[in-house]
Amino acid sequence: MKNAKDVVAIIPARCGSKRVPQKNRLVIGDRSLLDRTAGCIERSGCIDRIILSTDDPDLARDAASYPSIRVAARPDRLAGDDATTEDVIRHLIRTENLAKSTIVLLQLTSPFRTGRDIAELLEEMRKTAAKSGVAVCRWRLPPSPPFGEVSDMHVLGRSPRIDYSPMRSIHNEHWAINGAMYIFQADEFGRSGKFYDENSAIHVMPNWRSIDIDYQDDVEIATAIAKARNL
């Protein structure tokens, strides 16, 4: 897809991760998350520039192997637990002169996103004249209501009074944002402060490719998928 605006992929990758240490430097299958992301960007054929925002010196060193990736050192004030991705994007729009760009926000933790996913979402935005777009999958009902408290390891405990019957009626009939891609106009984000809204274009990904690595279990599931599907 040809775009009148500069199309810039931004990869935010903070060093600190409490649930999965050094999450952004993981290897899934035989490929690092950085290599998987760089590969899908290249295969999309849609990206003019790539910026990696990180405070991780090891990840920055890994990125030096990819000539197309510019590493933007993340300041300390944007490297703490309180900093948001929105804060990082605002900083990069200002410091990297991106005010007139189309931004493709890609987390490293979506290992099975493809270049075709990126290209098709950009194309959907073009066809519908949408100012933003997101990757989604089918929303699924949680397998069980919550019980008890995790601090008590001996009994199930009570279930909170939550009425799940309305949720069952919409099982698999709505979209869930999977975090694999957010595409938006920098100037529009500057006005709204949002990556998406109810009018955003969507690109539907299968649930197995929508895995987002946030817990150790996700690492094991993604590794198993990569092995089973030779990815």
Rank of each mutant, 00 (worst) to 15 (best):
M1H: 12
K2C: 01
K2L: 11
K2N: 12
V7H: 06
V8G: 03
I11R: 07
P12G: 05
R14C: 01
R19L: 05
P21I: 07
K23L: 14
R25N: 13
L33Y: 12
L34V: 03
D35N: 12
D48Y: 02
D48N: 09
I50Q: 11
A63L: 02
A63H: 02
S65Q: 08
Y66T: 00
I69W: 12
A72K: 06
A73N: 11
R74V: 00
P75L: 09
R77P: 00
R77S: 05
T84V: 03
H91Y: 15
T95P: 00
E96S: 12
S101E: 08
I103S: 05
I103F: 07
V104N: 06
V104P: 01
L105E: 05
L105V: 08
P111D: 06
R113D: 04
I118H: 04
A119C: 08
A119G: 07
L122C: 13
M125H: 05
A129L: 13
A130Q: 03
A130L: 10
A135T: 14
V136A: 10
V136F: 04
R138L: 09
W139K: 08
P143V: 07
P146T: 11
F147E: 02
G148M: 08
M153S: 13
L156P: 01
S159H: 08
R161E: 12
D163C: 05
Y164P: 01
P166A: 08
P166G: 08
R168P: 01
R168K: 14
S169C: 09
I170S: 04
I170F: 05
A180Y: 04
M181E: 13
M181A: 02
A186C: 04
D187A: 15
R191L: 10
F195P: 00
Y196K: 05
Y196V: 09
D197T: 13
I202E: 00
M205K: 04
M205Y: 00
W208Q: 11
S210N: 00
I213F: 05
Y215K: 15
Q216F: 03
A222I: 10
A224S: 12
K227R: 11
K227Q: 06
